[in-house]
């Protein structure tokens, strides 16, 4: 493995008195899709939100340990949270397009970060991002339509386009398909596979099949701890840990 893009070293998260994440270590490589699986409430969503400091918005959350993005601690004073989130984009469980036009949704990131100077550059970014998200053909004639008017699957791809438009290095996906039907899910999964060429992707999923389909590596979370990390094939065919085996064979979950 190359030098990893993310190195997580001994991270603990507390919500008030609740110890949600217990000394987790994990490396994430460039150009890989890594899945985080585990029973609900195991802390996988909490963990992924540590990677772009989304937990900052929760008043009672406290975090300790180191999360290094290309060697810089993202929780250090030098790291700017705006910069961090520009570099580490996020797609959420429920599609959350802004109540604005499709165009403005995608242009949102480039605009706030001042990435472009001219309208035509912005047009290019919007087009490119929608193309990468596989949505361009469906919406190119109605870019001014409001984002919430799209179907659920389209909305989620719009959110992915919105994230891509900033040009991040890593994309975090928190159960991106849990609110979608199987056909929309399949489209998103194909998209994830294509995006792997350019971005590191961390995906939280409750579906083991999805993890097996889209990711190269998988980490199994249990009660706030990582029980096992490994190649996806190995985790699903030959888990080393008893807890992992119980989970993937469906003994609990």
């Amino acid at each position: 493995m190359d030098k990893p893009i993310f190195q997580v070293k001994g991270v603990d998260v507390f919500y008030g008195d609740n110890h949600a994440i217990k000394s987790v270590n994990l490396d994430i490589a460039r150009n890989e899709v890594i899945s985080l699986i585990g029973p609900s409430g195991c802390g996988k969503s909490t963990f992924i939100r540590c990677l772009n400091r989304m937990n900052d918005t929760i008043e009672s959350a406290r975090i300790s340990g180191e999360v290094l993005l290309e060697g810089e601690d993202i929780y250090s004073k030098e790291m700017d949270v705006v910069m961090l989130r520009a570099r580490v984009g996020m797609v959420f469980q429920k599609p959350n397009p802004f109540p604005k036009s499709i165009y403005d949704n995608v242009a949102y990131g480039p605009r706030i970060h001042g990435l472009v100077d001219t309208r035509s550059d912005l047009d290019d970014i919007v087009k490119e991002s929608l193309q990468k998200a596989g949505l361009w053909e469906e919406v190119k004639d109605r870019l001014t339509a409001i984002g919430t008017s799209l179907s659920g699957g389209q909305q989620q791809r719009l959110c992915i386009a919105r994230t891509i438009a900033v040009g991040p290095e890593v994309i975090l996906m928190d159960e991106p398909c849990s609110a979608l039907d199987p056909i929309a899910t399949a489209k998103i999964e194909d998209l994830i596979d294509e995006l792997r060429e350019k971005y590191a992707i961390v995906i939280v999923t409750h579906s083991m099949q999805q993890a097996a389909r889209v990711s190269q590596r998988t980490a199994y979370f249990h009660l706030g701890e990582i029980i096992e990390v490994g190649d996806t094939d190995q985790i699903f065919t030959n888990p080393k840990e008893r807890l992992t085996e119980d989970y993937i064979t469906g003994r609990f979950g």
């Binding site: 705006v82 910069m83 984009g89 429920k94 959350n96 802004f98 109540p99 706030i112 919105r162 900033v166």
Partner: peptide, 26 residues
């Protein structure tokens, strides 16, 4: 909804940008 704010923060927007561009229009 909180999800709209998170979408905006997730893109790297500051709080005031989120308020001006997402929360207030909504």
């Amino acid at each position: 909804p909180m999800s709209l704010r998170e979408g905006s923060y997730g893109c790297g927007a500051t709080k005031s940008e989120t308020i001006r561009n997402v929360v207030l229009p909504a």
